[in-house]
């Protein structure tokens, strides 16, 4: 597998206090990575770090310094959904999804882009409320629209910061499966910040576990499947019931 994203000695701090120090991770094409950790462990900060040129250290995207890429180039490659994205204006869901095509120079819907956006909205179950205003939707519906916008961006890398937190369980599984499929079939790579541990262990290729701004573990879910990991990461006692094919985490 080719390396898609690599951070080298990246450090970041708030108001002079260091938070991430010497962060070094590598992400490969086609991987679905779950970013897990307690509140305040640095998951959202990591997502932000990966979307902009590093102030301290180096971030490479396809062996190229992220800082050498133009804003538009980055937007064509990397789609991001931040935590709690809100829109104060009454754009329709269709208009919001269309904005995902902006990095590709498509500013008005023509037949081709219209069909593409329809397809993306159908995939994310948002076509049925395409003409509804985004500020009138429920939290879950809004998250689906934002996911559709991210898919419309046709990214090679998707960074989602709790972008499915308001979805019901079936929608959450469906969206994760869509992302999983895109990683498998189209070679897309995704980093998903998630609190749904079961889903993270069940679907992700690797899990990046963060604790107080440090990488606690970055490995395959199976390799992290032990009581000590849960105790040290989340301060919870679990029972793990597993065989070669299936596993169950009982909290």
């Amino acid at each position: 597998m080719n390396e898609l994203l690599k951070t080298e000695n990246v450090s970041y701090g708030y108001n002079g206090c260091p938070f991430f120090k010497g962060l070094g991770i590598s992400v490969y094409e086609g991987e679905l990575i779950g970013v897990i950790g307690e509140n305040g462990s640095g998951k959202s900060t990591l997502i932000r770090l990966l979307t902009r040129p590093a102030e301290d250290g180096k971030i490479y995207y396809r062996s190229r310094l992220l800082s050498s890429m133009s804003r538009m180039e980055r937007a064509r490659e990397i789609a991001v959904i931040y935590q709690n994205e809100e829109c104060s204006f009454p754009y329709t869901c269709f208009e919001t999804v269309m904005m995902g095509l902006y990095p590709h120079g498509i500013t008005k819907p023509d037949k081709r882009s219209l069909d593409f956006v329809k397809g993306v909205m159908e995939l994310t179950d948002t076509l049925c409320f395409a003409s509804k205003r985004i500020n009138c939707l429920s939290g879950g519906e809004r998250q689906k629209v934002l996911l559709a916008r991210a898919f419309a961006q046709k990214p090679s890398l998707m960074l989602l910061d709790e972008a499915m937190s308001a979805l019901d369980i079936s929608a959450r599984i469906k969206m994760t499966d869509i992302i999983y499929d895109k990683c498998r079939r189209e070679g897309m790579t995704a980093l998903l910040v998630m609190h749904d541990i079961s889903l993270a262990f069940a679907r992700c290729d690797r899990l990046l576990a963060l604790k107080q701004g440090k990488v606690y573990a970055f490995d395959k879910p199976r390799a992290l499947l032990d009581k000590k990991f849960f105790r040290e990461m989340f301060n919870v006692e679990v029972e793990i019931d597993s065989d070669n094919k299936y596993f169950r985490i009982i909290m």
Partner: peptide
């Protein structure tokens, strides 16, 4: 105008869509 539309999605979202 279109860039202003995208900015309505929020500062960070707009930046991630390539808007300065």
């Amino acid at each position: 105008a279109l860039r202003l539309d995208i900015m309505a999605l929020g500062e960070e979202a707009a930046r991630s869509l390539g808007v300065n």
